[in-house]
C-alpha cells in the first residue's frame, strides 16, 4: 500500500491511543523485543521472512501459559488506515485467544496489508469469509467499557495494543 495509507494508519492508531513502531524486516526482532512485556505467548507469523522463533515469545503455549502471559503476539492480516483497525484471523495456532487474553496485544503487520478504508477492507473480508469460511476479528483500539462509570480500558480484552508495522 502507499506510504500515505500507512501514515494515515499511524495517525489513526495514535488517536485511539494505540502505539505503533515501524521497522524493516531486518530490524523486526529488535523492534519486537522492545514492545514485548514478558512472559509472552504468540502465534507463528504467516510472513516467510519474519519469525518468532528465537525470540522470548512462546509459540506453542499451554492454557496455563496463555493465562499467565502479559503479552500476546499475533499477526494482523490487514489494517484499515482511516479507522486504525487491525484484522486478526482465527487459526489453529490460537491467534484469536492470544490476541485477546493477555493485557497487552502486539500485532505484527506487513505495511503492504494496510488498506485505505472500510470499503476496501470488505473487499478482502468477502473472500476470507465467503470462500475460505474463515473467521476474523476487526479490532479497533483496546478493549474498553463504560459500564462501571467512566471509560475504562481493558475490559475483558487487552488494555494496551501495539502494532509493529514491517516494511518487507
Amino acid at each position: 500500500m502507499t506510504t500515505d495509507a500507512v501514515s494515515t494508519f499511524e495517525d489513526s492508531l495514535a488517536a485511539l491511543e494505540v502505539d505503533s513502531v515501524r521497522t524493516s524486516a531486518d530490524g523486526f526482532e529488535d523492534a519486537l523485543s522492545e514492545t514485548v512485556v514478558e512472559p509472552a505467548v504468540g502465534a507463528p507469523l504467516p510472513f516467510d521472512d519474519l519469525t518468532l522463533d528465537g525470540t522470548t515469545v512462546e509459540t506453542d503455549p499451554s492454557p496455563a501459559d496463555l493465562d499467565a502471559a502479559r503479552t500476546g503476539v499475533t499477526a494482523a492480516r490487514m489494517a484499515i488506515a482511516d479507522t486504525g483497525s487491525i484484522a486478526i484471523r482465527s487459526t489453529a495456532a490460537f491467534d484469536e485467544p492470544i490476541s485477546l487474553f493477555a493485557e497487552r496485544h502486539v500485532a505484527v503487520l506487513d505495511a503492504d496489508d494496510v488498506v485505505e478504508d472500510v470499503a476496501a477492507a470488505f473487499d478482502q473480508l468477502g473472500p476470507w469469509l465467503a470462500d475460505d469460511r474463515a473467521s476474523a476479528i476487526v479490532a479497533t483500539g483496546p478493549s474498553a467499557t463504560a459500564d462501571m462509570g467512566e471509560l475504562v480500558l481493558g475490559a475483558h480484552g487487552p488494555r494496551e495494543v501495539c502494532v509493529v508495522i514491517v516494511d518487507r
Partner: peptide, 9 residues
C-alpha cells in the same frame, strides 16, 4: 467502528 467486530464463521 466497534472495538471488536467479530466475524465468526
Amino acid at each position: 467502528l466497534p472495538g471488536y467486530l467479530s466475524l465468526l464463521t
